[in-house]
Design a protein around this nucleic acid. Structure first.
Lengths: 192, 192
DNA sequence: CGATTCCCTTGTCAAACGACCAGTATCGTC
DNA sequence: GACGATACTGGTCGTTTGACAAGGGAATCG
């Protein structure tokens, strides 16, 4: 195995472990040693590839948004669907079901006015949100409220899966539950 | 000031600080020293009144659910409003706007299958959720998905207020934004 | 083929953590 | 008014944290 291959493979393993642990425990609760253990390496190697915990967090955020990005891109709060709004919305909900980590990154970073929040907004959220804004650049209140209503309604159930199982007896990873939630969100946010 | 008064006053100050810090930083990120500083006391006093961090967290959770409880109680996902469903839903959204901490407690605890999640479900969530279940006790998938759709759509924008401000330019604590979100949620979840 | 780069391991550092405890001063009780 | 209970202070304990540094050993290059 070549040098570059080895490097990329190891970094990818660490980033994937970081995504999982950051989503489970939040930034402060995720120790670099736990991430290393999850990636089957040592803590020293983590700080070798990612000199600081913040840098590792940003790499993890890049990774999850890279996965969910395509589904996120074409959500259309304004109502006039660019293409088939129903299909786009369905894809968005299903992507949230498959990758609930994104929601955790957004909620964890978004609640504090710090560098991580600003970085996440500027780097990942703003570019995509700006697509759904009016052309004059002024984001109407309606666009904002609709955006967060869609995001919250689509993601929450998958992001608190353990709680949902205990509270309702249903498993959000069950395809039947996913389908039901997709249909509900579609019914809510599309003029039937 | 009497002994009991002093005790209750101090405990209340600590609990309120704990609610704020737990909501901001999550369980792991909230240090007892920061909570103490926020409550204008010392760390020793915190561990005197609350022997363990878990116990303090539970006291903080009791406090926030005590505040939001009444509004939470009568949300009616099933559709047939027990009383005026629109007014109940409006109160629920406004309560979330006034106390976004509740959502953070739910999301932080609900994502892991640990003791805190189980305690929160059994102590606060299940009693209230059971009110909205069918009488035979079997929670339909529809009830579960509707419950989480309402909770997510109602709360997210207020829980990531700093992010919303930077992303959309609108402040979720602005009464106009709150009103707009209330109207949106009402339009979504009530058969107009 | 020798020299060098660099991925990785191991061990260590100060700082911060939750928990604990002895001591103090004030309130309540008899 | 003396004595016991208790809210509170200050300091310390072992552990865990993120960051760092020295060394090894295999891939890369001249």
């Amino acid at each position: 195995m070549t040098r570059a291959e080895q490097r990329e493979r190891t970094r990818a393993r660490i980033v994937e472990a970081a995504v999982a642990v950051f989503a489970e425990r939040g930034f402060d609760g995720a120790s670099t040693r736990l991430i290393a253990a999850r990636a089957d390496t040592t803590q020293g190697l983590v700080t070798y590839h990612f000199p600081s915990k913040d840098e590792l967090w940003r790499a993890a955020a890049d990774h999850v948004f890279g996965i969910l990005g395509p589904a996120f891109d074409d959500v259309e709060p304004s109502g006039e669907a660019r293409r088939d709004g129903r299909e786009v919305l369905r894809g968005f909900v299903e992507a949230n079901a498959a990758h609930p980590e994104v929601f955790h990154f957004i909620v964890d970073a978004g609640r504090n006015d710090d560098d991580r929040m600003r970085w996440l907004v500027d780097e990942h959220l703003a570019p995509r949100f700006s697509q759904v804004l009016d052309f004059d650049g002024s984001a109407g209140v309606r666009a904002a409220t609709t955006y967060y209503a869609i995001a919250g309604a689509s993601s929450l159930i998958f992001s608190v899966a353990p709680e949902c199982r205990r509270l309702t007896g249903h498993d959000p990873s069950d395809p039947a539950v996913i389908d039901a939630h997709v249909e509900l969100v579609l019914r809510l946010f599309t003029r039937s």
